[in-house]
Design a protein around this nucleic acid. Structure first.
Length: 519
RNA sequence: GCGGGUGUAGCUCAGUGGUAGAGCGUCACGUUGCCAACGUGAAAGUCGAGGGUUCGAGUCCCUUCACCCGCUCCA
């Protein structure tokens, strides 16, 4: 195993454009920040990844911890849900955090993390600010920590020592008072902006004559809630019993503060989410099951190098629904733009019974589940493996990108055959002498049986191999003069460049063996 | 949101005030007959967009958009 090296994101992006994997959205109008389109090869690659996920999570999930079957069903819910869904889920409150910028230090803070004490400086009253995420009690500790710091400049130190009074929220100050506030990382007062709201959800209007006041709705910021609000429907109609899971893929939308890093942080993106419902006592066991199986799944698609890792969250970074749960972890990939760091591909978290309980409370509909085997009633706990489909595609593109100065294309895409957009190519060595007829017949046979099959009779054979290298096609079958006499063809392997002769009528079997369940 | 950089053909880039260019790729024809071969030819550009200065702007100025990098943010 060679040392991981940093690939050039610029080169990967150039190839994505050149070969039709990814285009900038609305490109002819100058593009739109945070939006990307998939070209012909990218669309197929993304579909292959989505299909592999569905096949391995819904249709044929890994065996249960104690052996035996795991019950999984699929769902496809709306992008626009009732606005109350997002009040219940916490997104209306949580996605509207007011933020404060510091003009001097260029830092940005959540307004509700800023706590204020007053002091009297040379120019009159000054307000000091400290940073504390937990609330007023934690702010008290934060002041103590500030006083123990050795790098506080003298004038500020003088203010700090005499700062007094109870902690007040920054958001409670008047505009005049804010002008006298000394930011946590500033040297002079008045560098902080007013709190500005950040609406991470996309608002929209339902109804052709709707107005913003009465008909406001949101594009979903996650697919998960569509599953939770259908929990009862699935239980009542699908003959599933706890433990079981509901899976869904689909678009989600977030007004990211800073879309960045190619498709990694997009404002429109696709998720692949599972909500797995289980008894509270079994949450830890199922958490471990999904965490380990999801990691193994990404490995099985070719992200098998040191570029993939599992990271358990620390207690202090857990989301509101996951505190004190069975665990939360990220499956992370080392992207060129995060190198040597990692970026999140999938999060596996124990959401406890938070969501079902919230919806029960807000809707008034009972979400508890009667377990007939145990004769007990409870609201199930949830283990959520939530993967980013577009991030998965990006990781596959980055992992596959393999520079090779020795070959004509200088680079090839080493996709796992299962997710490679083009499964195989068929070439007549020469576009005459009966070869095209045989090649076209083979192409038709393969297309009837497998996914995307490329046919190319143009230009030299070397160029055609090189084109397939950049597209990441794993196998090329070439019909030559010998085929016409003995019905054999050559197979050219993308990764080894080796060729072998096999019988024409063995090609279908050859491909089927190597593509496995993927077609 | 702040700072830095970039933006010219599908891709990589040259072009410092005076006719829009090259290499590669793409396409056609010929030749070749297993790794971007060769020959001839062709298509392809709102020079990111808008405004200004100028006799004249790809080039200078202003504004704006997009992408990359560093902060920031990331339920």
């Amino acid at each position: 195993m060679s040392e991981p090296t940093k690939k050039s994101m610029d080169e990967i992006m150039a190839l994505c454009k050149r070969r039709g994997f990814v285009f900038q959205a609305s490109e002819i109008y100058g593009g739109l920040n945070g939006f990307w389109d998939y070209g012909p090869l990218g669309a197929q690659l993304k579909k292959n990844l989505r299909d592999a996920w569905w096949a391995d999570c819904v249709l044929n999930p890994p065996a249960a911890p104690g052996g035996g079957d795991v019950a999984m069903v699929g769902l496809d819910t709306c992008i626009i849900q009732h606005p109350k869904v997002w009040e219940a889920s916490g997104h209306v409150a949580g996605f509207n955090d007011p933020m404060v910028d510091c003009r001097e230090s260029k830092k940005r803070y959540r307004a509700d993390h800023l706590w204020v004490r007053s002091a009297t400086g040379l120019d009159g009253q000054v307000f000091l600010v400290c940073l504390a995420a937990g609330g007023a009690e934690e702010a008290n500790d934060a002041w103590g920590a500030m006083k123990r710091r050795k790098d506080v400049p003298g004038p500020i130190w003088d203010l700090l020592v005499q700062a007094s009074g109870t902690d007040r929220a920054y958001t409670d100050l008047s505009p005049e008072q804010r002008a006298a506030v000394l930011g946590p990382d500033a040297s002079k007062p008045g560098s902080l902006t007013d709190p500005r709201p950040f609406n991470l959800m996309f608002p929209t209007i339902v109804g052709a004559t709707g107005d913003w006041e009465t008909n406001k709705a949101y594009l979903r910021p996650e697919t998960a809630q569509g599953i939770f609000v259908n929990f009862k429907n699935v239980v009542d109609t699908s003959r599933v019993r706890v433990p079981f899971g509901i899976a869904q893929t689909g678009k989600a939308f977030r007004n990211e503060v800073t879309p960045r890093n190619f498709t990694f942080r997009s404002r429109e993106f696709e998720q692949m989410e599972i909500e797995f419902f289980c008894r509270p006592e079994d949450a830890r066991e199922w958490y471990v099951y999904w965490r380990d199986n999801r990691l193994a799944w990404w490995r099985s698609l070719g992200l098998a190098s040191d570029n993939l890792r599992l990271r358990e969250h620390d207690a202090d970074e857990l989301a509101h629904y996951a505190k004190e749960g069975a665990g939360t972890s990220d499956i992370e990939y080392r992207f060129p733009f995060t190198f040597p760091g990692f970026g999140e591909l999938e999060g596996v978290s124990h959401r406890s019974d938070f969501d079902l309980r919230q919806h029960q409370q807000h809707s008034g509909v009972k979400m508890d589940y009667f377990d007939q085997e145990r004769n007990e009633r409870y609201i199930p706990h949830v283990i959520e493996p939530s993967a980013g489909l577009d991030r998965g595609v990006l990781a596959l593109l980055c992992e596959a990108y393999t520079p090779d100065p020795e070959r004509a294309s200088k680079v090839y895409m080493k996709f796992h055959p299962r997710i490679a957009p083009i499964k195989a190519a068929v070439f007549p060595l020469v576009n005459k002498d009966g070869m095209p007829e045989v090649a076209e017949r083979l192409r038709n046979d393969l297309r009837a049986r497998f996914s995307m099959i490329e046919y190319d009779a143009k230009q030299s054979i070397g160029k055609r191999y090189a084109r397939m290298d950049e597209a990441g096609c794993p196998f090329c079958f070439t019909i030559d003069g010998e085929t016409l006499t003995d019905n054999s063809v050559t197979v050219r392997d993308r990764d080894t460049l080796s060729q072998e002769r096999i019988a024409l009528d063995a090609v279908v079997g050859y491909l089927a063996d190597r593509l496995g369940s993927a077609r």
